[in-house]
Amino acid sequence: MTEAKQAYRVLFLCTGNSARSIMAEALLSVLGKERFEAYSAGSSPTGKVQPIAEQLAREFGYTQPLRSKSWDEFAGPNSPPIDMIITVCDNAAGEVCPIWPGHPVTAHWGVPDPAAIEGSQEVRRRAFQAAWMMLKHRVDLLLALPMEKLDRVSLQQEIRSIGKAGNP
């Protein structure tokens, strides 16, 4: 992990980096601002953020610029060291990832893709809200972990078990 008193850096990955990983970044950034630095990226970024995902992040108090970006930004020698990588879509979980500097712990927190839902604006918003609530629950579980007391193996097990948690 990173040095004492330094924030844990978490990278959320999804294929398109337009909704789920963006929402996870916003949630952890707001809720874990003293202990965590959150980032998001995609293996094949769409280049745009889903408007409903951005709206939910803004309503929650996330004020940083949101953009869809490639995971290559986090795999190079000048990238910030990442402590945890969490995939939030099944496609990204199955892809061959770059070799990450520092060999961060990894987990998969699969969340249904709200951007794939068709229908009225209200139907789509409900799908995004459901994904948001699932991610929020998992971020809350991550925040409850005694990070400073967990060794690498224990941390790996804990964050992987969070990915199996449904909504409360």
Rank of each mutant, 00 (worst) to 15 (best):
A130L: 13
I82C: 05
S44A: 04
Y62Q: 02
R125A: 13
S43C: 12
E73C: 13
V111H: 08
L56P: 11
I52F: 12
R160D: 05
Y62K: 00
K164T: 05
V10R: 11
L150H: 00
D83R: 05
V153W: 01
A144V: 01
A116E: 04
V105F: 05
Q156I: 08
W71G: 01
G102A: 00
C14Y: 02
P45T: 00
P45M: 00
M23G: 07
L31W: 03
S43Q: 08
D90S: 06
G61N: 12
A115C: 05
W109C: 13
V10M: 11
L143M: 00
T106P: 07
E25S: 15
P45G: 01
Y8C: 13
W109S: 15
V111T: 10
T46R: 12
V123Y: 03
K33S: 13
L11P: 12
I162Y: 04
W109Y: 05
L155M: 04
C14A: 12
G163L: 04
R138A: 03
A26E: 01
A19C: 08
D151I: 12
H108W: 06
A165G: 11
E3S: 07
D113Y: 02
A130K: 15
P104I: 10
A4K: 08
D151Q: 02
E59H: 09
R152C: 03
P104N: 12
P146L: 03
P65A: 11
Q6A: 15
L13W: 14
F60N: 11
E148A: 00
A115F: 01
T15M: 10
G32N: 01
M147Q: 06
S79N: 02
A53E: 10
D140Y: 14
R124E: 09
P80M: 03
Q64K: 15
P65N: 14
G166D: 13
L142M: 14
T87A: 08
Q50M: 15
M1D: 07
Q156R: 04
A7C: 10
A165D: 09
E118T: 13
E158G: 01
C97S: 11
I86Q: 11
A75M: 02
A19E: 06
P114G: 07
V88T: 07
S70L: 03
A26T: 00
A38I: 09
D113W: 00
P51M: 06
G163H: 12
P77A: 04
I99M: 10
R35E: 05
A7N: 11
N78F: 06
L56V: 08
E73F: 15
P98D: 10
P51S: 14
G47I: 01
E59G: 14
A93M: 01
A19N: 10
A41V: 10
P65L: 08
P81W: 08
A75L: 02
L56R: 09
L135R: 11
E118F: 11
G110C: 04
I162N: 07
G42P: 00
G94N: 00
Q6R: 15
Q157W: 13
C97D: 14
A165R: 10
E3A: 12
G110W: 02
D83Y: 03
A92M: 03
V153P: 04
G102H: 01
G102R: 00
V111R: 10
L135A: 11
G47H: 01
W132N: 09
S120Q: 09
H103C: 14
